[in-house]
Design a protein around this nucleic acid. Sequence first.
DNA 1: CGACACTTTGATAGTGGTCAAAGAGCGTGG
DNA 2: CCACGCTCTTTGACCACTATCAAAGTGTCG
Lengths: 252, 252
Amino acid sequence: MTYLNARAGRPGPPCLACPLRLKPAFEDKSDDELSFIQALKTDHRSLAAGSDIIHPGQENAELYTLYAGWAFRYKSLPDGRRQILNVLLPGDLVGLQASLLAAAEHGIEALTDVELCVFPRKRVWDLFARMPKLAYELAWLGSREEAMVDDNLTSVGQRNAGERIAALVISLYRRADALGLVSEGSFAFPLSQQQIADALGLSLVHTSKTWSKLRKAGFFAMAGGRLTLLNPRLTARMAAIYDSAKAPRPLI
Amino acid sequence: MTYLNARAGRPGPPCLACPLRLKPAFEDKSDDELSFIQALKTDHRSLAAGSDIIHPGQENAELYTLYAGWAFRYKSLPDGRRQILNVLLPGDLVGLQASLLAAAEHGIEALTDVELCVFPRKRVWDLFARMPKLAYELAWLGSREEAMVDDNLTSVGQRNAGERIAALVISLYRRADALGLVSEGSFAFPLSQQQIADALGLSLVHTSKTWSKLRKAGFFAMAGGRLTLLNPRLTARMAAIYDSAKAPRPLI
DNA sequence: CGACACTTTGATAGTGGTCAAAGAGCGTGG
DNA sequence: CCACGCTCTTTGACCACTATCAAAGTGTCG
């Protein structure tokens, strides 16, 4: 996070060959649409972990696509408290809200080193004018992000510490899985406990205690920055808490 | 909320004469766009307070505009806990997320008796194809709603009970004010304490205690279902907590 | 090895939850 | 007109979950 804070200009692969297209989570695009996107894209940019992709209050924010790495949206209060609103994974749109609204009401920070595809704000309008199908998908992606914030809010407002952590882990596991990022039940989990605390509205200390309680109860394990979901039965109970399906019992 | 649960067919005013257009909050539309909207609108519907506008899990939800009254989006957990995600005021879009996503991941309930303008889901696509400017505004409204959920999440995750209530009251006051719903410092405030609790992630009892503490401290008063913001100095301090401006002190 | 960031643990305090019951407000029906 | 039932609000007592404070432990990197 020191010397390379905004390495730009590296071309990245052409959109036609974008590896994200291969993932099951991504719909097929027509050649027309792909070349339009390709023309829209003005840059491929790398940022180090910890740097701001969008500053709080920034005007004229650009629109990005997260090509590689993790990021998160957050909102700060004047006294330093901050809330992580949602986590962004490869393929997610970065800064749609900021590019539609006059000024960003939140910040976006790189959680790991990231690579971004850059689309200038002005051309977002072109996209609406000329590629309604893509515009529709943009709106769809926006709704999807809102649904994730909805989930988080429900967690933070209604669940206790253990349930919140379980829900977060499961949600990230599923999203990582959909991207093919899970191998042998484990996936890279770059969130620090402070960041988990900020995402769940908990204190760092309580997060640490609850986190290790869940680990010791056999829900999951951490090793080498990777998280493994253990014990399918327990995991299923965690999922029951996460899904709107069946009645929960206390987690621990 | 008994006999009239979905009185439909009443025409409502033509969009050209929509009273919401007169409010400063609403941008001018061209005649073209207005007649397009008018053609899109298939119904004008009344619902009683307490009824569901969109059921949780509902598929093929229609898109609405809230013509009159208040509503709220919510999300329930299997055991009955529920989180109110945001409050909808006249002029707000209802069900954008539900109409873009395959199935609604939340419910929307009428808080007061409401009147809705109905737009069929299928035609939302027409709007993207033929009226890019309107589509852009739709996406803009979606981002605006997400920003409101962001605020709520930050409140619930980071603020204590008194601050949460203050932030909610101020935010609603400002929105009501922008719609011309405030007269002499007071506005209709139809939320029950249970609903406030559900919105803020608090228990009913604690909400009641904190609410009356704020009242007794002279922040606001309730009478006849209307809330009055008292004491500009205290209000300014409440606003300071709400705005991302200056460092807060304890509220009470 | 030391600096630094992050995690863990123990002790203590407080915000907010739960339980229980009483008080207000309001429409319906005797 | 008042009683009854219903919903919503208020209050008190008690307890638990979570925050705060403090300090030690672990790991990584130059």
